[in-house]
Simulated assay, not measured.
Amino acid sequence: MTFASSENDITAEEFKHAFRLHPGGVAIVTADIGDGPKAMTITSMFSVSVDPPTLVFSASAMSSSTPTVLSAETVVVHMLSSDDIDLAKLCATSGSARFGDEVDWDRLPTGEPFYPRSSSWIRGRVVDRVNVHGSVLVVVEALEAKPPNEDSARNAVPLIYHNRNWFGLGGSAIL
């Protein structure tokens, strides 16, 4: 068996450009470790298991919210629709008032900050953190969820990020 060389022939710019053409669903992660709520917009979330229900997302070292998210025992992951574009942009903007007076946010009975108008959310316990070249993969076991109601799910237009732009995913399913 022959394996490829371990040397990288791809530049960081080439790698980033390749992923610009791969759309990602948009989500927001919120957490609070006692020094105030923090939030970050992510496009790197995916499900791993349904038994137990587990998801993973990547937290970049460049985000000011990452230290809180990495120290938190629990987080809330909000899956966004195109109706949530303003919230996605707010939580992606450095220095923004993500929990200001003009923002519709609250706390769950368990204490985590959350955005009640998001399409759906999952509250979970952080069960592992894996360092990967300056980012951290955060493994979360779901504890509670607010799925969209049937009408919302049927009419929701998912929010995606593609080639440095925000899009509502429309159109018909391809069979």
Rank of each mutant, 00 (worst) to 15 (best):
S120V: 01
P147K: 03
R154P: 02
P23M: 06
T41L: 05
L21H: 14
T43K: 01
P147T: 01
M62Q: 14
K89I: 09
A27H: 14
W105I: 07
V56W: 02
G25R: 11
D9Y: 11
R129M: 08
W166S: 05
P113F: 03
L87Y: 12
S152I: 05
I85G: 02
S44Q: 07
R164C: 02
A156T: 05
A61Y: 05
R117V: 08
G171S: 00
V138N: 11
F99M: 08
A142V: 09
T54C: 03
G95D: 04
H22A: 13
F167T: 10
G34L: 06
S5P: 03
R117E: 14
P148E: 04
S64F: 02
A145C: 06
R154S: 04
E7Y: 10
P148K: 00
N131E: 15
H78I: 02
G95R: 04
A142Q: 12
E150A: 14
A156G: 00
I122L: 15
S47P: 08
V48G: 11
P147N: 07
L143I: 10
H78G: 08
V130N: 09
P53W: 08
F57Q: 07
S172P: 10
G24F: 07
A72Y: 03
F99Q: 12
T110N: 05
R20P: 03
D83G: 04
D9W: 12
F114H: 15
V138Y: 07
F15Y: 14
T93I: 00
S49H: 10
L175M: 13
P109H: 07
A72P: 01
F19N: 09
R164K: 14
E13V: 14
V69A: 00
L87T: 06
S172L: 14
L143C: 02
S120W: 09
I122Y: 06
S6P: 13
N163M: 11
D106R: 11
E141G: 08
P23C: 05
V29P: 08
S44G: 03
D106E: 14
E7N: 09
R123C: 02
P67L: 10
S65Y: 05
D104S: 11
L137G: 00
R125D: 01
E144C: 06
S81M: 11
T66H: 04
R98A: 04
A173M: 09
S65A: 15
G95Y: 06
S119N: 14
I10G: 01
R20E: 01
F15W: 12
G168E: 07
F57E: 08
M1R: 11
R164D: 13
S63C: 01
G170K: 07
V77G: 07
A27T: 15
V75W: 03
T2W: 06
D83Y: 05
H78L: 04
R20K: 04
V138E: 10
V103K: 04
A88I: 13
P113W: 00
L87V: 11
E112W: 01
S63E: 02
K146A: 14
L108P: 08
A59K: 04
A39P: 05
G36R: 10
D128V: 10
A61C: 04
C91L: 07
S119M: 15
I28E: 04
L143Y: 05
S58F: 09
D86T: 13
V48A: 14
I160C: 13
R20W: 03
P52D: 11
